[in-house]
């Protein structure tokens, strides 16, 4: 009996310690975003931009877009000056934020259910796996790769159907830099920015 009480006590503590696990963080954000997208206040075409900016803001809390940008530049990162690094992070993290949040806002209509599969923690890094189940009964595997920052866990890479966002951009950047130059890459990213 005593052993059981100790175990129960331990579980309670462990529960408290694990409440903020990477998976729990992903789950909280996902559910908040889904609630926002389903909210009757933000439906319809005329509410589209409001809906998107709310989703963006919510996702910004969970994503380390700056770290993603740094990861996308890969081995070219160390060759840049501090000013260039700052410029790149600002430019490309904005681009990532726009494209990913828009994707979420576009595709949620087909979503039926999110299955949270589990998490794997390696020191300060974690991988959280989910499966998005669509209304057409198709499963889309999704993985969030996260980094610990202080007490929080933030996403730096999303692996959609086995394709890592960071790796994909890294390959594109490698190709563009090899063919033209770093400056050429910056020019191409600027050309992608939506005209205000």
């Amino acid at each position: 009996m005593k052993r059981l009480t100790t175990f129960a006590l331990f579980l309670a503590f462990a529960g408290a310690a694990f409440a903020e696990s990477p998976l729990a963080k992903v789950k909280t954000t996902t559910e908040k975003v889904l609630l926002l997208l389903q909210d009757s206040k933000f439906q319809g075409e005329e509410k589209k931009s409001e809906r998107r900016s709310l989703v963006r803001a919510e996702m910004e809390k969970r994503f380390a877009w700056e770290e993603s940008a740094r990861a996308c530049l890969g081995r070219h990162w160390i060759k840049r000056t501090p000013a260039e690094k700052a410029e790149f992070v600002k430019l490309f993290s904005e681009f990532l934020k726009d494209t990913y949040s828009d994707k979420v806002a576009t595709y949620y209509g087909d979503l039926e259910k999110v299955d949270y599969q589990g998490e794997k923690i390696q020191a300060d890094y974690a991988s959280v796996k989910l499966v998005l189940k669509t209304k057409a009964k198709i499963d889309h595997p999704l993985e969030y790769r996260m980094e610990k920052t202080g007490d929080d866990w933030k996403v730096y890479d999303v692996v959609i159907e086995g394709v890592s966002m960071v790796k994909n951009y890294r390959d594109q950047f490698d190709a563009i830099i090899a063919k033209s130059s770093y400056e050429g890459l910056i020019k191409e990213i600027r050309a992608k920015q939506p005209t205000p």
């Binding site: 890969g74 990162w77 690094k85 020191a123």
Partner: peptide, 26 residues
Amino acid sequence: SFSCIAFANEEAKPGTQDQEFHDPFA
């Protein structure tokens, strides 16, 4: 194992911003 995780988290991260992003999963 839990204390190991906790201990690993205590360790200061190396000066990150100058280096290439370290990505164990990649």
